[in-house]
Simulated assay, not measured.
Amino acid sequence: MSAVEDVVTEAPAVEAVPKRAMTLGTGTSVVVLLLLLVVPVFAKNFVIFQLTQLLYLGLAVLALNILTGGSGQFSLGQSAFYGIGAYITAVMMEQFNIPYFLCLPVAGVLCFGVGFLFGQPALRLSGVYLALATFALATAMPQLLKLNFLEKWTGGVQGLVVTKPDAPFGLKMSQDMWLYYFTLVVVLAIYIFSVNLLRSRSGRAFMAIRDNEIAASAMGVNVALYKTLAFGVSAGITGVAGGLSAIAVQFVAPDSFTITLAIQLFLGMVVGGVGWLPGSIIGAAFIIFVPNIAEGISKGLSGAVFGVLLFLVIYLVPHGARQVAILGQQFASRLRKN
């Protein structure tokens, strides 16, 4: 029997991902959704803006989670796709007067194409070498956005101001509140799509490649296709998140999409739990609010305080928020039995 036949015979079939492995329970999901719907009604505009920021950054972390947690590919270049999506949305809105809700699908499709194409040469790389390649992409992107021949559209170094949309149909709500609910609908739609993707045949192929690329290839999985597809899907979702950020912040500039942003997204994925999609929001909350907490503790040493807090989180819960959720579920089960 050949070596390939041995692999085919001994390698277990890839099981469908259990529902709890990637989503919250039905009751918890309903409670979280109700909170997301109700809280903005009683909040100030600045708090609503922060919640909107939480949603679109959580979406970007989710996109990275699909790539790394789903297919096992490490990327430090998500800020590049985020910036591309933001600029596509901003340029279409301000230079071509295209409605914002039409700009986001275009940003997603174009970023999918860029990610898919970038995934082609990246097929030869894995692990730290792939991370370095994507790091190079993130480092180069701000400089590419400053090129002279793009300046008439992008605004060059000075960036581009984006007009925040008003609520449609004469709805009596502020711009921030309308944009929050619009972002919530987009994020929920993509979240449902992502869950179904990871449960599908393609998602099982992603995870087979993540667990053992050689065994996946021996079982008939087209490794090259699915690895590039994972890159494309992740880039597309990240592009939509970037477009939402451009609308919410009302401004895009090359220096807003540096490697620092890519590291923040990677950090959010780790804190939220690699491979656990609901943890993306928790990871986004960490990268938004914990630096502010650190600055409140010590303005002069905010970076050091943030580092200590991050170290404590990684040391105490190395698997991120997913580990906390599992421990909470086990504790609740014990209470029910007693």
Rank of each mutant, 00 (worst) to 15 (best):
S245P: 00
F231P: 00
T258Q: 14
Y226A: 01
V240Q: 05
A241G: 07
G242L: 06
F251N: 00
S256Y: 15
P254W: 14
V240L: 06
S245W: 14
A230I: 09
V240N: 03
K227H: 10
S234H: 08
A230K: 11
A230Q: 06
L225S: 03
T238Q: 05
K227T: 06
A248V: 05
A246G: 01
G242D: 06
G243W: 10
Y226I: 01
Q250T: 14
V252D: 07
A253G: 07
V240D: 05
A235E: 03
V223Y: 11
A241Y: 14
F257V: 00
T260P: 00
S256N: 14
T260D: 09
S234Q: 08
G239W: 14
K227Y: 07
D255C: 00
L229W: 05
S256L: 15
T258L: 13
L244Y: 14
K227C: 04
N222T: 01
V249K: 10
G239Y: 13
A235C: 06
A230F: 12
S234F: 12
T258F: 12
N222E: 08
V223L: 09
L244K: 09
K227I: 01
A253C: 02
A224Q: 11
G243L: 07
F257W: 11
N222K: 13
T260N: 11
K227D: 02
G242H: 07
G243E: 07
D255M: 12
F257D: 01
P254K: 11
F251Y: 15
V249D: 06
A253L: 07
I237T: 04
A235V: 07
G242F: 12
S234L: 08
T260K: 07
Y226Q: 07
G243I: 08
I259Y: 14
V233P: 01
V252G: 03
I259T: 13
T228E: 04
V223M: 05
G232R: 13
N222I: 02
I247S: 05
P254Q: 06
I259S: 06
I247Q: 04
T238G: 04
T260E: 09
V223T: 12
T238L: 05
K227S: 00
T238F: 11
A241K: 08
F251I: 00
D255T: 02
V223W: 09
A235R: 06
L225P: 00
Q250D: 03
F251Q: 02
G239T: 05
Y226R: 08
F257P: 03
Q250A: 10
Q250W: 10
G236W: 14
G243N: 04
Q250V: 08
A253S: 14
I247W: 05
V249H: 10
V233R: 07
I237Q: 02
T228A: 15
G232W: 15
L225R: 15
F257S: 01
V249M: 14
F251D: 00
F231H: 04
L225E: 01
G232H: 12
S234D: 04
F251H: 10
P254Y: 11
S245K: 13
A246Y: 14
V223N: 08
L229M: 12
L244H: 10
V240F: 12
Y226L: 03
A241M: 08
V233F: 13
A224V: 06
A253P: 02
V252A: 11
T238A: 14
G239V: 03
